[in-house]
Measured scan of single mutants.
Amino acid sequence: MMAYMNPGPHYSVNALALSGPSVDLMHQAVPYPSAPRKQRRERTTFTRSQLEELEALFAKTQYPDVYAREEVALKINLPESRVQVWFKNRRAKCRQQRQQQKQQQQPPGGQAKARPAKRKAGTSPRPSTDVCPDPLGISDSYSPPLPGPSGSPTTAVATVSIWSPASESPLPEAQRAGLVASGPSLTSAPYAMTYAPASAFCSSPSAYGSPSSYFSGLDPYLSPMVPQLGGPALSPLSGPSVGPSLAQSPTSLSGQSYGAYSPVDSLEFKDPTGTWKFTYNPMDPLDYKDQSAWKFQIL
């Protein structure tokens, strides 16, 4: 009977010793046993002879290597770790002494450095960015050149030099007046198309007034536009458009034309069986010896 009264063996659950049927240790109110408190290391007290050895090595170098620390530790009968900690504390003490010396050398008012006064946003004049500046400075420094007289040679050079070769001289006033084509001369031969040399188009003023001019072949195509416009036809070669000034309004060009419109200028042929003959000019830059190549039959 006494065997049943004795408590059973101890069981360990999660490293906790349980005594038989008792489960009081598993209750929430019972805390787990805490780790033992780490003991504080005792402070090391250095003797005068030990301090002399350490100070002598510190005077040589503030960062001794492990071999120098072990050698000193053997002399003063201390572990190497204590020597390492002593050098660490000695360097910190040396830095603190240097900072105190710097503070003593500075004057009393030198510690508080005078800061520059901050400028207020409204006091300083700042350039306004509302208006974009002129990058080319046209509004201040540029002045347009004065327009020359209508009959000045410089204007003629600016007008005619675009179309004339570089080897030719500017046309005088008398020749510029001949550039304007007359109405009857352009409409006299509506079906004849003559190819003149390129030099005649640039230099010869008579080429624009003769039936064999460069633009005589364009007349049949330009004249039928007159009834559609409801007024006189516009002429690209009329009046002052080739003269001194090219800047004319469309209203000033509306009254200039080749001449009176005639039914002869239409595109319809009077004789459907007729042929169109292209007159060959020996001055043509295209060297075609066979003139029969310039004739064709309209079917």
Rank of each mutant, 00 (worst) to 15 (best):
P147K: 06
A117R: 11
G243A: 04
P170Y: 05
Q175R: 13
P21A: 05
V157S: 06
P197C: 11
E53T: 12
Q175A: 08
P7V: 13
S216Q: 07
L286A: 01
S124F: 07
F87D: 12
S199W: 12
S254R: 08
A293I: 13
S203V: 13
A117I: 01
S223K: 07
S34Q: 04
Y208C: 01
F58Y: 10
G243R: 10
P9F: 09
A73R: 12
T44Y: 14
T194L: 12
T279Q: 01
Y191T: 01
A92W: 11
F201S: 01
N6Y: 10
L237V: 05
S167Q: 03
P125G: 09
L222N: 01
A189F: 14
L237N: 04
T187K: 08
T61I: 03
Y280N: 00
F215Q: 00
A189G: 05
L186Y: 03
M2C: 00
D290W: 13
G178C: 07
E173W: 15
V72C: 03
L51M: 10
L57F: 10
L253A: 01
V226A: 02
A56V: 08
A35M: 10
M193E: 00
G148L: 02
D290H: 15
P190E: 04
A114G: 02
A177K: 10
F296Q: 00
G148S: 09
T45E: 11
V160G: 00
S292K: 13
V160S: 03
Y142R: 11
S266V: 13
W163R: 02
K38M: 05
S169K: 11
M193I: 14
K75Y: 11
L74I: 09
Q96V: 06
P147R: 10
Q291M: 09
L171Q: 10
S49M: 02
A158S: 02
E71K: 10
A15I: 14
P170N: 04
L51S: 14
A29V: 12
S143T: 03
S235E: 06
A158D: 00
I76V: 10
R37V: 10
R115K: 05
I138M: 04
A196S: 03
V160H: 00
Q228F: 15
Q104G: 04
Y221L: 06
L146I: 05
E173R: 14
S185D: 06
S206R: 13
T159L: 12
G217Y: 12
L57M: 11
G239A: 04
S266A: 08
R126Y: 03
H10P: 06
E70M: 11
E55N: 11
A181P: 09
A233N: 12
T129G: 05
A158C: 12
G109A: 09
Q297Y: 12
Y214K: 05
P220G: 04
R126T: 00
Q100H: 09
S216T: 07
S235K: 12
Y63E: 13
W86L: 14
P107R: 12
N14V: 15
P172Y: 10
S128N: 06
W276D: 00
D290L: 13
V66C: 05
L146P: 06
A177M: 12
S169H: 02
K102L: 04
C202P: 02
T47L: 11
G230R: 14
L54Q: 15
P236V: 14
D134R: 09
L246K: 08
S204W: 15
G259F: 14
